[in-house]
Design a protein around this nucleic acid. Structure first.
Lengths: 334, 334
DNA sequence: GTTATAAATGTAAGCGCTTACATTTTATGT
DNA sequence: ACATAAAATGTAAGCGCTTACATTTATAAC
């Protein structure tokens, strides 16, 4: 592999000049610039990005920590992020945290030890304190889907209260009065918020929230399955179930089918996230859109601006959910 | 950030010694090793991986090029790969090629310019010649889901002929005689192979392949939709449709519903890949399992062995598909 | 106690770049 | 033509490590 040294010799200039044309910043005359680029292409020269990083103290890489590399939620997020960075010649190093405190911390440290210039974190298990401490450190980061008051300017979040509200309102408008709710783990802020929005809509319709129709799930399909079964077996009647995400809604649908309930005639089901497969399941799932792709891009823009001092579109931290009405919600039969 | 130099000063040893305990290879006495590690933790020292890479000419990173970061197919693949490398302290740099020749080449060059020690490529658009030339280059790579005879030892592939055969056989065993087929783009080897296996099964059942029941799609949902509609409107009767992947099967299902066909009573549908959402769609889709996660891990092992000289489980290049029978295939009504 | 040998440690060059600063060349005004 | 400023180029010192080689220290055999 040719080095800058060989290029400089061939072009008959100094190292510094070659470096200058590479970074085309300083003043270089057209004549020498041409000589140098000619030499470069003759040698098939490619700059060694490792050496560049060491010398410039900038690795041009940003670390991305997600909970899972697979699954319908993270794909669009990573995609939005990679897209933006690729165009800027930055690269993204990916690690998975698996919603586990230790593995998330390891992931973050791994990314830092890799000299990432900045970090985009979608972390769930790590504590607020840890992140606040981290924010005092050398490497800047932005958080997706997590709100910490002390770090509010670097938290890119969805208005989950509104999302919960929209979901409930839609169901209520179809005349449902007895609505089961399968929440996420209530130690998670987003699960809390979605439920809060839900209750808010209920209140607006002068309905009280029935704790017996609440099941606390874990955002995974199986808990949706268990949740619906558990609530059903209590014997209380309900005509709709709202789930705090699409995966659990999928589980609830499977469960309903097993219980012999006709969908959506006997039971309306509502999801949350608008993950891509929601339109393929049956009945096509009504849900709340989570603009995760855009939020990923916004996180990337945050890094571009704060780490690389690039001009970007105006930064936005709070995103709004919206209703996606499909066929899993029917008018209340009675 | 503390450097090796400060550690050496604090521990009262030379740079080389510190480096030795970091890489714990050479002979270092227990006493000095202890002094050094103590100094390290006192300073909160973290090695600068960029400097390590430059000095050792090894970046400990492997490049991964996939067509898309999102979608049900690549997720499990990336996941399998990240998993293995993370445990070995290697990191993965991800780029997307979007099945486009230029972008795939750009992606590969991007990864190479990032000094990846090795590459895992899932490329579709780039030519065999390009890859053969690339294989003469400095950086080793392994191919997933592509077979090039000259590079056969580094091609990790699925036996698609067998997969196509298995799918058709299953449908044929249910008594179907008139079977539509929605293929992938037939310039792609995997699309060809799946179709070849399909024909092979047909022949075994003494049935001839009806070209009029073939539609060439592009592996995307929309083409499944179009495909079924097109075939249907020709007026030929058929009781089953086999699609060369699950996405197209999903499209075909949507199309069938629009045409007023009851599923699976009036039309049996078969997919391919066993992507995770196949069990959520309705009717639950019978399909062919593609062990993409395992194949990703195998690719990672290939790199571990050939690039980093690690011991790994024995390498395997050809993987076998298997039938996943669910409810989208019924006995032929007549 | 020698000497030969092995183990432990140190020295210093270099990986391929960037960049502050110094120097040379060119342009500008009078 | 000359002084002065601006533009172009060169020089050399790092960036934080690894590693070949040199040197010192410990170990063993006699």
């Amino acid at each position: 592999m040719a080095t800058i040294y060989e290029v400089s010799k061939l072009a008959g200039v100094s190292l510094a000049t070659v470096s200058r044309v590479m970074n085309n910043n300083a003043n270089v005359s057209d004549a020498t610039r041409k000589k140098v680029t000619a030499a470069m292409s003759e040698l098939g020269y490619r700059p060694n990005s490792i050496a560049q990083s060491l010398a410039s103290n900038c690795s041009n890489s940003v670390g991305l920590l997600v909970s899972e590399l697979q699954g319908p939620f993270y794909g669009p997020m990573m995609s939005g992020i990679e897209n933006i960075f690729r165009n800027q010649g930055k690269h993204v190093i990916i690690a998975a945290g698996h919603s586990d405190e230790e593995r998330e911390q390891q992931g973050i440290e791994f990314l830092i030890s890799r000299n990432c210039d900045g970090l985009i974190l979608h972390v769930e298990a790590v504590s607020d304190d840890y992140l606040i401490k981290l924010s005092k450190g050398r490497v800047p980061f932005v958080l997706i889907n997590r709100f910490i008051p002390e770090l509010s300017d670097r938290c890119i979040i969805l208005n989950n209260i509104k999302g919960g509200y929209l979901a409930a309102k839609h169901v209520l408008e179809q005349g449902h009065k007895n609505i089961a709710y399968i929440s996420g783990p209530l130690w998670k802020k987003d699960a809390q918020d979605r439920l809060a929005g839900h209750k808010q809509a209920l209140a607006e319709f002068n309905l009280s929230f029935n704790e017996q129709l609440l099941y606390q799930g874990d955002f995974m399909e199986t808990s949706g399955f268990e949740g619906l079964k558990t609530i059903y077996q209590q014997g209380l009647s309900f005509s709709a179930v709202i789930c705090a995400n699409d995966e659990m809604a999928t589980g609830a649908i499977a469960s309903a089918r097993e219980l012999g309930l006709a969908l959506p005639e006997q039971l309306s089901v509502m999801g949350y996230d608008n993950v891509f497969f929601t339109r393929h399941i049956y009945p096509p799932l009504s849900t709340i859109n989570y603009p995760i792709n855009e939020m990923g891009q916004m996180a990337a823009n945050w890094i571009l601006k704060h780490v690389y001092q690039k001009q970007t579109e105006p930064l936005q931290t709070m995103f709004e959910p919206s209703l996606v009405a499909r066929q899993s919600i029917r008018h209340c039969p009675q």
